[in-house]
């Protein structure tokens, strides 16, 4: 453990590169899933239509989906014989690149963000809509106000999404390949270093991963605390 702390304190460049890539990949995935998940969650929480129960079931299923299965799905999509292999677009990344990892993690985080946002929006007192419409709000303004009122829950959805992707290993291992200096992130590096018997580095990586998760939760609590005042 002492050696692990030394590694962190010394600012080991390999360690820093792994942390930076982890934050870049999970941060990008979180951004994508937040931009898509919050509007979808808000829409599902605020509207009633024929196919809604089916979509809600899909979202809830996605919230409990094993990341490794998502990894397999993305792997098959992007592999040389997959349906997207021949399509050339900046939106379709190649396998064993950070882009593929972002895609897989976005798919993992999206239902978490959408599902928790939906629950948060549904938890807002229905009287709110009537009250703000009585004050002259349009449908869009009503939806936006409801989302702002549900901000604590929406924030939880983002943190849940971050927690879901920063700590997942199966999907990034499959679609990233854990390539040194290219697609190696905290979780895949921990697996590798443990297998190699480099427990100091593995523990150092584990401590950093825990610290990041702790920090994310700390930020969430702080923001929620501010919200209460």
């Amino acid at each position: 453990m002492a050696q692990a702390i030394e590694l962190i304190a010394a600012g080991d460049p390999v360690l820093l590169a792994i942390v930076a890539l982890s934050l870049r990949v999970s941060g990008a995935a979180l951004l994508v899933s937040t931009l898509l998940g919050i509007p979808v969650g808000a829409f599902l929480g605020l509207s009633r239509f024929a196919g809604r129960p089916f979509l809600v079931t899909l979202i809830y299923t996605g919230m409990g989906f094993p990341p490794v299965v998502v990894g397999l799905f993305v792997y098959l999509l992007l592999s040389r014989s997959g349906p997207l292999a021949q399509v050339e677009s900046v939106l379709i990344p190649a396998l064993f690149t950070p882009g593929a990892m972002v895609l897989a993690q976005s798919i993992i985080a999206f239902p978490l963000v959408a599902g928790f946002t939906m629950s948060a929006v549904m938890g807002v007192d229905p009287q709110l809509a009537l009250q703000v419409q009585a004050l002259g709000a349009t449908r869009w303004q009503t939806a936006l106000t409801t989302l702002v009122e549900a901000r604590s829950g929406v924030l939880v959805s983002v943190i849940a999404g971050f927690g879901g992707v920063i700590s997942e290993v199966g999907a990034v291992m499959l679609v990233g390949g854990n390539i040194d200096g290219k697609t190696r992130v905290l979780t895949t590096a921990i697996v590798l270093e443990t297998r190699k018997g480099n427990f100091d580095l593995a523990i150092a990586l584990g401590v950093i991963l825990l610290a990041l998760t702790f920090l994310a939760n700390g930020i969430m609590l702080r923001l929620q605390g501010q919200d209460a005042h």
């Binding site: 007192d125 709110l128 009250q131 009585a134 002259g136 009122e149």
Partner: peptide, 11 residues
């Protein structure tokens, strides 16, 4: 506009 019996104030 309406003032309702139960005032719903925004957070």
């Amino acid at each position: 506009t309406t003032v309702f019996q139960r005032p719903f104030l925004l957070n």
